[in-house]
């Protein structure tokens, strides 16, 4: 059975996986691979190791790893082989193949042009923050944590000494 793992870096920001998870869902719909998982190097779940465990449990024998990276940099040339080495040790029955990074392709040019065609004015420029907050997983390291955009952790009340600083600056 052939499985596909989309490999990405991961992020502290809530909702940062929205694009990649949408790609994974569309790839599942296409059905080119009998199993499609996303695996992250840092911060975001599931980890690459967890993604491998999932496809192994589903009975995969061949695993194609497609890096969701614009270029073949450190994470693709160095981090990914390390992750695959560990995964290979844990699941010796699997055969791994690594695809090229996105790099250069007409698809990127088309994406750019279509994005430009749908460009909007200032009222929509921060819609991404609202979408990110909708996928909140409260984590003090998230840039939205405890801000007005974080739906689960209230904004911390200003402390008196903070107000004193503000007054001193004013």
């Amino acid at each position: 059975m052939d499985a596909l793992i989309l490999f990405s870096h991961g992020s502290l920001l809530c909702g940062s996986g929205e694009a990649l998870e949408a790609h994974a869902e569309r790839l599942r719909q296409r059905g080119d691979f009998s199993r499609v998982e996303v695996g992250y190097l840092n911060y975001t779940e599931p980890s690459f190791a967890e993604a491998v465990a999932r496809v192994a449990a589903a009975g995969a024998t061949r695993v194609t790893v497609a890096p969701y990276f614009l270029v073949t940099g450190y994470f693709v040339t160095t981090s990914l082989p390390r992750e695959i080495e560990k995964a290979q040790a844990a699941h010796p029955q699997l055969t791994f193949t690594v695809a090229e990074a996105l790099g250069q392709d007409e698809a990127l040019a088309n994406a750019l042009l279509e994005s430009a065609a749908g460009a909007r004015g200032p009222e929509a420029w921060r819609d991404g923050l609202k979408r990110a907050a909708l996928r909140c997983r409260p984590d003090p390291r998230c840039p939205l944590y405890g801000t007005e955009n974080c739906p689960k952790v209230p904004v911390a009340p200003a402390r008196e000494e903070d107000e004193g600083v503000v007054a001193a600056r004013a």
Binding site: A19, H23, T97, V98, E100, L102, A107, S115, A119
Partner: peptide
């Protein structure tokens, strides 16, 4: 505009990269 990662065009590109490797 949207960041290009939101584009389904990139799904097609991922599929092409994966198919070539497989």
């Amino acid at each position: 505009g949207d960041y290009i990662g939101l584009s389904p065009r990139l799904t097609d590109l991922l599929a092409a990269r994966a198919a070539a490797a497989a």
